[in-house]
Every structure is written in C-alpha cells, then in structure tokens.
Amino acid sequence: MTQPDSNGQFGAYGGQYLPPELKQVMDDIAAAYEEIRNDPAFQQELADLQRHYVGRPSPLYFCRRLTEQLGGAEIYLKREDLNHTGAHKINHCLGEALLAKKMGKTKILAETGAGQHGVALSAACALVGIDCEIHMGSIDIAKQAPNVTRMKVMGARLVSVERGTKTLKDAVDSAFEEYLRDPQNFFYAIGSVVGPHPFPQMVRDFQQVVGEEAREQFLTQYECLPDTLIACVGGGSNAMGLFTAFLDDTSVEIIGVEPSGHGLDTPNHAASLTKGQPGVLHGMRCYLLQDDEGEPLPVYSIASGLDYPGVGPQHSHLKDIGRVQYETASDDDCLNAFVTLSRCEGIIPALESAHALAYAMRIAPQRPGKKLLINLSGRGDKDIDFVAERLQL
C-alpha cells in the first residue's frame, strides 16, 4: 500500500506516461531523489528547516465547543494551517526546492490552484536562492488575490493562464509546456501526489511528516489512536500525508472527501474517484473524469485547490483495494463547515479543508465516543473575501 513497484506503479496506477525525451529526465530525478532520501545529511537539513522555518510539529487540537455542539464523536484537528505560509504545501515544497538546488537546476516551475502551493514554493525558492515561476488560472487569480500578492512579494514570476477552464488543470498544462522548453535545467515542482513517477511517491514522502506527528501526538496525549481519519482530496497530497502513517493500523478507518460541487448529478463537481474511470492524465494512470475519447472533462469546485479532473495514483489504488473510503461534500456543505468552525472555535479553515470538516460534521452525531481526526490542511485567509461576498456577510 505504501511503496510503488519498480515501474513507479501503485497497483494498476501511476507509472510514467511520457514522451521519450522526458523519460531519462524523470529517471534522473528519481535517482537523485533516491540518493537524498537515504542521505542522513539531507534529512537532517530538511528536519531542521521543518522545525525552525516551518514551525513543526504542528499542533493536535481538540475542538471542545464544536464537539459539544454536534454531540456524538470528539473532533480533533491536525493544525497544518499554522505552518509557515499557511498550509501543508510547505512540507513538500522545501524538499523539492532543496532537491532542485542539489541537482543544479536554474529555475523551478509549478502550477497552483488555490495559491497555497505557489506561495509555499515561492518561499522555498527564496530560501534556497533559485528562480521560481508559477502558472495559475486567471479565474483562480481573481479568487485568490492575497496569495497572488504573496507570491509576487517573494519574487516569483506569475503566469496567468487564460485558456480552457482557466483553472488548475490548465495551469498544469501551461507549466508543463514551459518545462518542456528546457527540462535539463528546469525543475517542475509538482504540487500534489500526482504526475509521473517519482513525484507521487516523493511528494507523499515529504508530506508523511503530518501523519507521523499526528500518530505520535495521539498516542502521547490520549494513549490511543484515532478511530477515523478524514482529509479532503483533490490531487491528494494532504490526505496521503495524514493517511500513510496509519495504513497498517487496521483499526483506524480512513476517509477521503472529494468535492461534489453543485451535485454529483451535474457536471459541476470534481469527484474523480467517485464518478471517474481509470485513464491517463499528466504522465500517470489514475481515476479520471473523462469524455468518451478519454480526454479530461471540465471540473468544478468552490475550492480552487480541489478542481482537478484526476487524483493521485496511490489514492486510486487505495480505493480499489478498499483501504480508504472516498466520500463527497458539496459547496453548501463546505460553506456551512467554514462558518461553523470559524464561529465555534475561532479557526478559519481553507475551503479545501472545510470539505473534510463538513463530512466529519455529518457523521459525528452518529458516532458517540469515537475520535475523529481531520487534517486542517490550510487556513482560510485566502478565502475570506470570496466567502464574505458569497454569503453576503
């Protein structure tokens, strides 16, 4: 469940679906990653930055008032929103930036949806001293103005993507085309557990610190493991970061929550695992929302970081073997959870994270005495103007 095979596949998913000229480039990245992941000096450098730059470990927080309001299960949050740059994204961005620097790359490219990956990568590139270029759909640029400003302040070059749906999938396409201009000198820092091998494994490994901390914190503070883990799933990096450390704990239920948007019976959702079929996207095989010709369908979510037509190959494998259960939450569910947590606990969640919270709020009343752990993968500062306008606050 935790490691890809020698071809970079998790079961039937993953791999490298690439033009021949990129195969060697990806193999070089895979070799460099294997070297640094087994290098104690690199791991110590990364651990020091996680502690002193990011602010790890992030807290484990018990939502007392929300628990009382819902009745039933106890609600706990893994507070990734308190990391430097405001989300879990900094965990893998630091690792990717350090790897690119050690490989002698001259520029790091990336896509971003909600902007959190772009902000985190801009910070990491400023820290290690390497040029950074972020591609972002123009619709997401309009929705995520604070993050756009943060990226520019930290020196990143921002490319507005005007084609297609003008959202995350098109930003990935645009960034990848720029990467193809000079893959020997550029490094594409993929922002989730997606793409060709080794990125699904590499991003997962850098994010695994979330679950390792949470597991240790639960055992130390409560002398038990949580009964249920819940995390939102777009590409799926925050979810894999939490889930991985618990996959062998068969007593722990694991739930990923996809965006059902305006409804699964409409085209306006991004529930790839729930409604998709296996296909090939961005160099990997995964569950994919696709048309009859296998082309990705337009997708939608109120949360910019979740509107992606595919999903990480490890998630696809975990669905097939039944280890992780995948559910959905709608825009309305998300907004309700966003406001409820803000007013009940004084914590403003990212709209992405609010999908996971919404599902937890749905099942908590039926699970008295159980402990539900939600990965609060990002803070909602980036979303407050959009939500205020939407709800006329």
Rank of each mutant, 00 (worst) to 15 (best):
M1Q: 14
Q3P: 11
N7D: 15
Q24M: 10
A30R: 11
Y33S: 07
E34H: 14
L49M: 15
R51V: 12
R51T: 15
H52K: 14
S58M: 12
T67D: 03
Q69H: 12
G72N: 01
A73D: 01
T85L: 02
I108E: 02
A110C: 14
H135D: 04
I141S: 08
A145L: 14
V148A: 13
T149R: 14
T149N: 13
M154T: 07
G164Q: 07
K166D: 01
D170V: 04
V172R: 09
F176E: 11
E178H: 13
L180H: 12
D182G: 06
P183R: 04
G191K: 05
S192E: 03
P200V: 01
Q201R: 14
G211F: 03
L225A: 07
D227S: 09
T228Y: 09
T228V: 13
A231G: 11
V233M: 04
G234V: 00
S237N: 06
T250D: 15
V252Y: 02
V252N: 05
V252R: 06
I255E: 01
G256A: 06
H262W: 12
K275T: 10
Y287S: 03
Y300D: 12
Y300H: 12
G312S: 07
D320H: 11
V324N: 10
D332I: 12
A337Q: 02
G346W: 08
A350V: 02
A354H: 08
K370H: 13
K371S: 11
K371P: 04
L372Y: 05
I374T: 00
N375Y: 01
L376D: 03
G380P: 00
F386M: 15
V387D: 04
L393Q: 12
